[in-house]
Design a protein around this nucleic acid. Structure first.
Length: 890
RNA sequence: AGGCGGGUAGCUCAGCAGGGAGAGCGCCACGCUUACACCGUGGAUGUCACAGGUUCGAGUCCUGUUCCGCCUACCA
């Protein structure tokens, strides 16, 4: 058998790289397109090519890897599809910044050259995050790695676009969109972040055209008045009722604009009159549509005032604001201003203030898609877990607005639409057309806009499997089994995949969606560069090892909660890894002469500890399987942690030391070696999905048959290993040992001091158990002598431990501290008395006896007997002790 | 403004089917016992946010209050 040349402390560094390469070389990550095995598939939430692994990725991918390794070991044809996202705006920004260093803009290069440049960038840096995933131990099928701009995925994008268009679900329209003046593109509603800002509310006078008087409007953005085309009041507002239909003069511009009535205006706010700027305000745009108002755009794509802004032309919007305010004031139009806190939309990417702007964009008509996607969840075709997120999903689907899918950038999937300038024909096609289908003109102009990045992401579950081709992989793995992602992209991504999957494939993209928490710092704050509270996963891996890091993530992922990350926790689990490591070292040292599992050992040759540990292990296996099946990662992790550390290491290994050290029966020893070997082997299998590296290292040292733990079979529960008798017997042994240790501890007696003890066990059955366990008790309690008898008198100078009817006397000749012992027993008595009153009260309660279930009553009665017994025994012991300590008079 | 989640030991959190509260870390005491001091043994610690209600019995179910976090929407 293996000899132990393992170092005292586990060193993750070399082993991790070694085993990852080993797995790769053997193709263990690869899934089969067709297989007799049942399929299980996960598509990775594709990280941005520009991305660096952060805590969110680390958690997300750890959980996926735990599940995929688990399923693979269970014999599934397990596919974890990896890939990255082209991340339109983000990537374009990165490359533009690179260009800026060289003093060029993308416009200097031109579209084609610029895109070439982005591809170059991707080639050079795009692999960073995938390499980081490898360090995390992710068992993705890298042979299938995809990129959203790959040829086939781009084909899928065009195909879906055309289908949606032909299905009447894509339209082009002038609409108010969120415009980022820095990125020079429209962005979707979801990409706008609102932040509270301190600003002002300006009150401006708009004089009536006829007669005297004026109407006062309030605004936080005075510069937009240049584009006002109406003033609106609530039709029920008595103050303004008679003014509806009249006109006012727009100051500075001197445009005549109407006063209109619309319920959008609230009577309570300000003067009850609102200036309407349809081109630069979402609500105003809606008002304008209802009333057929003129829409006047006053800014260009950089938010600089255009020709419609009169003298303010050429000014930036905020410069213009100051000038407008100044001019209003000097013209006598400004009533005043007051400080005002309001929400301002920012670009999620560059944090510039969003400018709502009317422009021509492409939209997806979303309602019909949302309806199907809602129904699929209602019918349970897809489960959203934890279930609380279902509500959020429905809520959003019900209030969804059309999806603006066009972006005015260069990096992305160019919209497959061509225009013929000759006849004005528009051609929507999956392939580049040579000539106009209408007039034959061969000079066609392709739409400049590209698609929102999320458009291609929405196709990910089937585009990565080869669609639009009917590939075997698609047939095998779609719908995918599980999607694991953060709840922050439930709308961006999950909802859209549902819609697109159902529309295109006529089936849901995944059976289960598991939404995990967000990783925050130890104070519960979102990690961000600006706050400087980022914990870098790779740094943690370097410092504590991947296994410790992964286990931490899994252990702290309670469903639906935030994960608060701190280094201390990771360090704590590093200790756990080390504990496992050392338990292995110990085992190997004592398995040197173990011939292997070929030995057949009968159950009757197994010792109590052997039977007990198998029983406990079996229970743990059941718990881990159940927890993982329900995506309760923290529970699975806790179960295996508890077992390995506190049952296997703390009790079992200590119990079997004498047997292993070889003083007793050789057959017994071999049986124990067998158990030790098997239990260790199964334990590391349980741990493998969480801790892939250290478990492989251990496996390779322990098993040495050329196999890998990664493709071994995951443990399954086995009822035949259940051994309630062993559990009961060990309970008694453990209680007695703990009782002696407790006395030792409380009396401050060194662990190395051998003690003598007497155990009084009136009940015959229990006495047999204690007698059988005698050697274990002597061993673990560090006794030099132990007498076991029936009902016995209390010896002199002894501390007493009470376990039900069992009394444990620790002989303390010369060391007896009567006062200390008295205090100790009184403390215990206090507890028991409290217990006793409580239970007796309950049993005396007629309502309880009449209404509680039979099993509960039986349990309480049983408890009563035990507590009563203990109470009696303790009482006697205390009486004796008090006599001793009481000052006698001779 | 609406929706969701949360307030449990000094800290971070479990507690999934109502039957007298748990873990890890930290803390205190004793120990370098031949796997591990990244260890072992023992110990201390809780008006389960607050107020009502349902129930024989509530951390757990219901109602209200309060504080914190998030999401969605946004009244100029």
């Amino acid at each position: 058998m293996a000899e132990s040349s393992l170092s005292k402390v586990y060193e993750p560094r070399e082993t991790e790289a070694k085993w990852y390469q080993y797995w790769l070389d053997r193709g263990f990550f690869r899934a089969e397109d067709t297989s007799s095995k049942k399929p299980f598939s996960i598509v990775i939430p594709p990280p941005n090519v520009t991305g660096m692994l952060h805590m969110g990725h680390a958690l997300n991918n750890t959980l996926q890897d735990v599940i995929i390794r688990y399923k693979r070991m269970q014999g599934f044809n397990a596919l974890w599809m990896p890939g990255t996202d082209h991340a339109g705006i983000a990537t374009q920004n990165v490359v533009e910044q690179e260009l800026a260093k060289e003093g060029v803009t993308r416009h200097d290069l031109g579209r084609e050259k610029f895109i070439e440049r982005v591809w170059e960038w991707k080639k050079k840096y795009g692999g960073v995050i995938t390499n980081q995933l490898k360090r995390l131990g992710c068992s993705c099928d890298w042979s299938r790695e995809c990129f959203t701009m790959d040829e086939n995925l781009s084909r899928a994008v065009r195909e879906v676009f055309v289908r949606l268009y032909n299905g009447g679900l894509i339209y082009q329209g002038d609409y108010i969109v969120n415009w980022c003046p820095r990125c020079h593109t429209a962005i979707s509603d979801l990409e706008v972040e609102y932040k509270e800002e301190q600003g002002f509310l300006w009150h401006i006078r708009y004089p009536y055209v006829e007669g005297n008087g004026e109407i006062v409007v309030a605004t936080t953005r005075p510069e937009t008045m240049l584009g006002d085309t109406a003033v609106a009041v609530n039709p029920d507002d008595a103050r303004h009722k008679d003014k509806v239909g009249q006109s006012v003069i727009l100051p500075l511009i001197n445009r005549k604009i109407p006063v209109i009535a619309d319920h959008y205006v609230s009577v309570e706010f300000g003067s009850g009159a609102v200036k309407i700027t349809p081109a630069h305000d979402t609500n105003d745009f809606a008002v304008a549509e209802r009333h057929g108002l003129e829409i006047i755009k006053i800014m260009d794509g950089s938010a600089v005032i255009n020709e419609n802004g009169g003298v303010y032309r050429g000014q930036d919007r905020y410069v213009c604001r100051e000038n407008v305010v100044r001019d209003l004031e000097s013209g006598g139009y400004l009533v005043g201003r007051e400080p005002y806190v309001h929400n301002v939309g920012q670009c999620y990417r560059c944090k510039s203030h969003i400018e709502p702007m009317v422009s021509r964009q492409w939209f997806v008509k979303i309602k019909p898609l949302a309806k199907t996607a809602t129904a699929a969840v209602v019918k349970g075709k897809t489960r959203i877990l934890p279930p609380m997120w279902e509500g959020t999903y429905f809520e959003w689907m019900n209030n969804i607005r059309d999806w603006c899918i066009s972006r005015q950038i260069w990096w992305g999937h160019r919209i497959p639409v061509w225009y013929c300038d000759n006849c004005g024909q528009m051609i929507v096609s999956t392939v580049d057309p040579d000539s106009c289908s209408e007039c034959g003109n061969n000079k066609l102009r392709q739409e400049e806009d590209v698609l929102d990045t999320w458009f291609s992401s929405a196709l990910w579950p089937f585009s990565t499997l080869g669609w639009p081709d009917k590939t075997p992989a698609l047939k095998t793995f779609y719908p995918t089994s599980l999607l694991v992602t953060g709840f922050d992209i439930l709308f961006f991504w999950v909802a859209r995949m549902m819609m697109m999957g159902l529309y295109t494939m006529k089936d849901v993209p995944f059976r289960d969606v598991y939404l995990h928490a967000l990783v925050r710092d130890e104070k519960g704050e979102k990690m961000s560069k600006s706050k400087g509270n980022i914990i870098d996963p790779i740094e943690m891996i370097d410092k504590y090892g991947t296994d410790a890091f992964r286990f931490t993530l899994a252990a702290f992922t309670a469903q639906g909660r935030d994960v608060k990350m701190s280094e201390e926790r990771i360090e704590g689990y590093k200790y756990f890894v080390n504990k496992i490591w050392n338990a292995t070292r110990f085992s190997l040292m004592n398995l040197e002469d173990y011939p292997g599992e070929r030995v057949s050992v009968g159950r009757n040759e197994e010792s109590l500890p052997d039977r007990w540990i198998r029983h406990q292990l079996n229970r743990t296996v059941n718990e881990v399987v159940k927890s993982l099946d329900e995506y309760r990662f923290n529970e699975a992790a806790a179960a295996v942690y508890q077992f390995v550390w506190h049952e296997f290491c703390d009790w079992y290994l200590e119990l079997i030391k004498p047997t292993l050290y070889g003083k007793g029966d050789p057959a017994q020893r071999q049986a124990t070696q067998q158990t030790l070997f098997t239990v260790l082997k199964i334990s590391i299998k349980l741990l493998h999905p969480f801790m892939p590296f250290v478990t492989e290292e251990i496996w390779q040292t322990l098993i040495r048959d050329g196999s890998s733990i990664m493709v071994s079979d995951f443990p399954a529960g086995d009822d035949s290993l259940q051994d309630l008798q062993a559990e009961k017997q060990m309970r008694v042994v453990m209680d007695v040992v703990t009782s002696v240790r407790n006395i030792r501890g409380e009396m401050n007696i060194a662990p190395s001091k051998k003690l003598r003890a007497v155990i009084s066990v009136p009940e015959e059955e229990l006495r047999a158990i204690v007698t059988t366990g005698k050697d274990h008790i002597v061993n673990l309690a560090n006794l030099e002598a132990l007498d076991i008898g029936g009902k016995m008198e209390e010896p002199k100078d002894a501390a007493t431990g009470v376990i039900g009817s069992i009394r444990v006397f620790v002989l303390l000749e010369g060391m007896m501290d009567v006062a200390g012992e008295l205090a100790r027993l009184e403390k215990e008595m206090g507890r028991v008395t409290k217990d006793l009153t409580f239970v007796s009260k309950k049993l005396a309660n007629r309502d309880f006896m009449a209404k509680a279930s039979k099993t509960v009553i039986e349990k309480e009665e049983e408890k009563f007997r035990a507590v009563k017994e203990k109470h009696v025994v303790l009482d006697a012991a205390l009486k004796k002790l008090r006599e001793m300590s009481a000052p006698h008079h001779a």
